[in-house]
Design a protein around this nucleic acid. Sequence first.
DNA 1: ACAAATGATACCATAGTGGTATCATTCAAT
DNA 2: ATTGAATGATACCACTATGGTATCATTTGT
Lengths: 133, 133
Amino acid sequence: MNLLTRNTDYAVRALIYMAGKVPARVSARDIGRDLGLPGPFMRKTLQVLQKAGYLISTKGKSGGFELAQDTKKIRLVDLVTLFQGPVSMGDCLFKKKICSGIKSCPLRREILDIEALVLERLQGVTVASLIKG
Amino acid sequence: MNLLTRNTDYAVRALIYMAGKVPARVSARDIGRDLGLPGPFMRKTLQVLQKAGYLISTKGKSGGFELAQDTKKIRLVDLVTLFQGPVSMGDCLFKKKICSGIKSCPLRREILDIEALVLERLQGVTVASLIKG
DNA sequence: ACAAATGATACCATAGTGGTATCATTCAAT
DNA sequence: ATTGAATGATACCACTATGGTATCATTTGT
C-alpha cells in the first residue's frame, strides 16, 4: 500500500525544486537531471501540473516551466487528487452491493473514519510547509 | 487508493459471519453463498486465514472452517498485513535513492506521520469491536 | 534555418489483484 | 468398499493501474 504514487511524489519534488530556483523558468530535462528522475516522465508530470494551473509553460528555445501559484496555496491533498483521483479509501464497498442491505456497515464506517483522518492531514500540508519543515 | 483490498474485506466479512454461526463449522461454499461472494475465491481466502492460525479447518465430508481464536484477539491491522503486506505508505522513497542525500526529507516525514496515524487506528479495531459497533 | 523546448498522444512492460480451474487428499455416510 | 463433499495446494487467466519511453507536431529564440 502506498499513500503517494511516483507521479505525485515526483510532482511534489519538482514543485519544491522549482520554488527555490532562480531564474524561475526551468526545463523538464533539467529538473529530471538535477533530481535524478527520468526526464520524459518528469515532463509528462509537469504537463499535468500545467493543465491544472500550477505551472506556466513556455514553448520554444529557452522555454520551460515556472510556478504559477504561491507555494502556500498548493496543497498536498490537491496534488494527490490530481494524480491519483479523489482520496477515498473505501471504494470497493460502494461499487459491489455487499453492504447494500446494511446501512451502517461497521467495517465501512471504520474505514471512512480513517479516511477522514488522512484527508485532514493531507489538507494541512502545502508545498510551502514542506519546504519550511 | 484503497485502504483494504477485496481479499482483506472478504476475510473480515467472513470472520464476522463465522462469529455468529452455530454450529461453528461452515464450508467456504456456504459462506460464499450467504455473503454473496464468489465461493472459490472465498475458499482461497479462508485457507490463508487457516494457515495464519485464525481458523481451524476440517477436511472431508461435512468439513469446513471454524474460528480458532477469540474475535477480540483478531486485529484488523493483522489481517491487512496478512493479505496486503506490512502497512507502510512510503515505500517508494526508500527503494529509490531519491532521498539518499537528504536525511530528513519533509515529504517522507509527513507520509510516515500519516502512516503512524492509520496504523494506530487499525490496531484498535478487532473483529469483535466491528461486531459490537 | 535550426535547435531546443513544450503539447499531445500512442505505446509498452510490469506488477498487483480478483477470480477460476484442477488435482490430490481426507473423511463421513451409505 | 464406494461415493460425495469438503479442504490443501497450485497453476492459470484477465484486467487494471502504474511507470516509463517514443513520436510527431508546434512554438520560439538565436
